[in-house]
Design a protein around this nucleic acid. Sequence first.
DNA 1: CCCTGTTTGTCAAACTAATTTCAAGCTTGT
DNA 2: ACAAGCTTGAAATTAGTTTGACAAACAGGG
Lengths: 219, 219
Amino acid sequence: MAEPERVLVVDDDPPLRRMLERTLAAEGFEVTVAADGGSALAAAERYAPDVIVLDVAIPAPDGLAVARRMRAKGLPTPILMLTARDAVPDRVAGLEAGADDYLVKPFAVAELVARLRALTRRRDSQPLLSYADLVLDLDVRRATRAGRSIELTGREVGLLELLLREPGRVVTRERALAEVWDDAAQENVVDRYVTRLRRKLGDPPLIRTVRGAGFALRA
Amino acid sequence: MAEPERVLVVDDDPPLRRMLERTLAAEGFEVTVAADGGSALAAAERYAPDVIVLDVAIPAPDGLAVARRMRAKGLPTPILMLTARDAVPDRVAGLEAGADDYLVKPFAVAELVARLRALTRRRDSQPLLSYADLVLDLDVRRATRAGRSIELTGREVGLLELLLREPGRVVTRERALAEVWDDAAQENVVDRYVTRLRRKLGDPPLIRTVRGAGFALRA
DNA sequence: CCCTGTTTGTCAAACTAATTTCAAGCTTGT
DNA sequence: ACAAGCTTGAAATTAGTTTGACAAACAGGG
C-alpha cells in the first residue's frame, strides 16, 4: 500500500466537521480541517492535499469562490463539493467553478468515502517518462519542464521517447530513422528534429551531440 | 410509460395561467392551478404535486414566502420559480428561499417544459459531467457554459460525453465512431461534429485537435 | 399520410500544420 | 587551416483538418 491520501475538509459546522474528521481518519485518510474560505485557501496551499471536501455554504469566501480562486491559482487538486439542496443551478455552478464532483447534503458517509476514493484513484494510462526536470506524457503528446507545458508534434514525441527510454545512452541516426521514421528519409531529418526539440525544451540543454555517433540525453 | 407527473402552477395572471395549464396538460402533465400564496400552500399539501411552477409576484404571501414556508414545513417538492426581471438579487433570493431552478419572464414554453422535466426526472438521474466551465447534463441533453444554456443534438451529446469521460485524454476518430456512431460511417463525420460542437460551445475553445491522433479537451 | 423543419451524413475544396529537403554557415578535432 | 560532421533558416512538399453546400433520413404536427 502507498502512503495515505491527504484530504482537506472545509465545513463550518463543528459537529459535522468532527464527524468527517474522525470517519475519514478511520478510513485511512490523513485529514486536515478548515472552517472558512480564507483558511481553506491557506491550507490548500500549505498542506497540499490530494483531495478537498468543500462545503458551498461557509463563511468568508464561500465554497464556489474558494474553488474558483484555487483554479485561478492553478491548483489542480480535485474538489468534492457539498451542496445543501438538490438544486440543479447549485450543482451546475459548483462544477463551473471548478469542482470535480458534488454530493448533496444529507449524504451517506460511505458514499462520500467512495467518491473520494474515485477522485484520488489514478487513472490507468501510459506511465510518464522522465529525465531530470523533463516529463513526457505520451497519452497527451505533451512534455513538461520546470512546470512549463510544451506541446509536441508526432515526430517530436517519437524522437524524445526514444531518447528517454535509454536515458544517457547514445541513439544513432540509423536507429532513430528505423524506429521513429518508417525509413526512407534523409538522415538529416533527425538532426532537424533534434534542433526543434532543443528549441522547444529550452535551457539548460538536455540533448547532447555525440560527434560521429548520434545523440543522447546529457549525463 | 409511468403515470403523469403532477404539476402545480401558481400565478395570478389569468391568461398566462390558462396558457400554462393548457400547454402543460398537452405535454402530458396533470395540472392544478392556484392564484395566490395562500391557496398555493394549501394545494401543495393537499394535492402533493411532483413539481411546482411558482411566480414570485403573487398576492398574499409572495413566491419567496411561499417557498420558504414550504421548506420550513419540510416539503421537498422541487420548485421552479418565475422571476419578472433578470435581476441577480431576485434569483439569489429565490434559490435561498428554496427554489430549485428559476426562469426569467418572458420565457419560451418549450424551455419551461424542458426545465420541469429536468426537475421531475432529477430524483435518480445521471450525474452531471463537467470540464472547466462546461457542464453537461445527459438527462436533458443540454450543456451549460458560463451560465449560458446550450441545446445539443443526440450525436453532439454522444461525442461530448465521450470527451468528458476522459478529460484531456485523446479520443481517436476510430474510438468515437465505435462508441458514438454504430460504426459504418465515414471518419469525417467525427470532424464534422467536432466543428459543430466547437461552434456551439463558443470561446475560449475547449476541444483541441491532436494532429494525426484525434481530439481532446484542453485546459 | 403529407408537409415542414431539424438532424445527420457525405463530399470536395480550402486551409493549416507538420514534415522533409536543401544548402549555406558553423564547430570541432587534428 | 582543413575536412568532416553538425546546425539551422527558408522553402517545398505532404498529410491531415476544417467547413460550406447539399441530400438523405427522421421527427413532429396538422
